[in-house]
Computed example of a mutant assay.
Amino acid sequence: MEATSGYKDYVAGLMAGIITVITGHPFDTVKVKLQKYNTEAGGVKYKNGLHCATRILQTEEVKGLYRGATSSFIGMAFESSLSFGIYSQTKRFLQGEIDGGKPQPHAIVPSAAFGGAIISFILCLSELVKVSDARVPNFLLYLEYHLCKVVFQCRMQVQGTDFMVPKSTRFRGPLECALKTVQQEGLTGMFRGGLATLLRESVGNAVFFSTYEYARYFMHLQLKGASSESSQLIDVGVGIMSGGLGGIAFWSAVLPLDVAKTIIQTTPEKNHSKNPFSIYRRSGLRGCYTGLGPTLVRAFPANAAAIVAWELSAKLLGIRRVQ
């Protein structure tokens, strides 16, 4: 990308985040419920992602799949803005203007990992409340919400009215969830799963952006010489494929860390292991990939939509990129 006003990178990332929630939130709800209840010893299990989604629709209708989507729109927009913005600006700083369209691993990997590490601190305060439909009526409440979202995102998401799921404490919204967590676990409870989130985001972002950049480069290389009339359609098609493949690569690489994070954040025992690698000893290799189906089904369309939204927004904002 050529030098440009910094804020534009963040605006384009914000648009990508909004589109991601619209496309992928229902799949994420199913994934979190599978990770929580299908890794516990004993108890009723969901047969698969489709069974879980069907149960949610039967007991809570479509709104059950979008539990907490209101807060996710705010959180994901902010997080995506930072992720794409930091990645774009750091990559530009590391590789300068010597781009030529060819991916530069020495710039892509550290830029993506750095962006992922930064947003992991916000995410670890954000995912414990994910599926709350609580409103955010003013800026102060928004700040209070954002200081607790990752841990509470999952805790709100695993709630619901499905009789297959053991009845748990109900939270009316993210703020109540935050207050109860602090009362019961102290301030450190708000950072449960922090290491797992840091590893997931830094490693995952490096894998995602590397896959996206290389897939995009080689696809454009193959399509070089296409008529200018079809160039916009080609850009969208390449964005869909490169973004979708990047999303699949991301989750294939870090799903075990995501499963560990969900378990750490939703287990009520204070002395439960915070080691993200203990998931293998607890549930084996199969348990590490609990929720893989809905995760990959979500990964392609959600990330494809995010990349297309990011690239189109960047183009509208005047951020040009050499193919």
Rank of each mutant, 00 (worst) to 15 (best):
A41P: 04
F93T: 12
E213R: 09
T161K: 15
G287L: 08
F73N: 03
S132M: 06
S88Q: 13
Q183W: 14
Q222D: 13
L123G: 14
S242R: 08
K91I: 02
A196D: 08
V131S: 15
V150G: 14
E60A: 07
G160I: 01
G160R: 02
Q183A: 08
S231G: 04
L82F: 09
C177N: 09
T262V: 15
A113F: 07
S71W: 14
A206Y: 03
K224Y: 09
V207I: 08
I319T: 03
L14E: 12
R67Y: 02
T181L: 11
K315G: 12
T211Q: 09
I319F: 04
N48F: 08
E176K: 01
L140M: 09
A226R: 06
K261S: 15
M15L: 14
I56C: 10
L57Q: 04
G68I: 00
L179H: 15
F191K: 02
I56G: 11
V308G: 04
A260K: 00
N138Y: 02
V308Q: 01
Q157A: 12
S202V: 00
K224G: 11
G318R: 01
V308M: 13
K180T: 00
S313K: 03
S168D: 15
Q157S: 14
F27W: 05
D258F: 08
Y145Q: 09
V136H: 09
A309E: 04
R216H: 09
E79C: 11
N271H: 03
V254P: 14
G116P: 06
Q222G: 13
Y217G: 04
H146M: 14
T197S: 14
Q265V: 00
M164L: 15
F250D: 04
I263W: 12
P26R: 03
G116R: 00
F114C: 07
L147C: 11
F139W: 07
R321L: 12
H146Q: 15
I119V: 13
G194L: 07
C148H: 08
G225P: 14
R170T: 06
P105K: 03
C148R: 13
L233I: 05
R281K: 13
G115Q: 06
P137S: 03
Q95I: 00
I19P: 12
L316K: 12
T211H: 07
W310Y: 15
I22F: 11
Y142Q: 11
L34K: 08
T4W: 13
N38E: 10
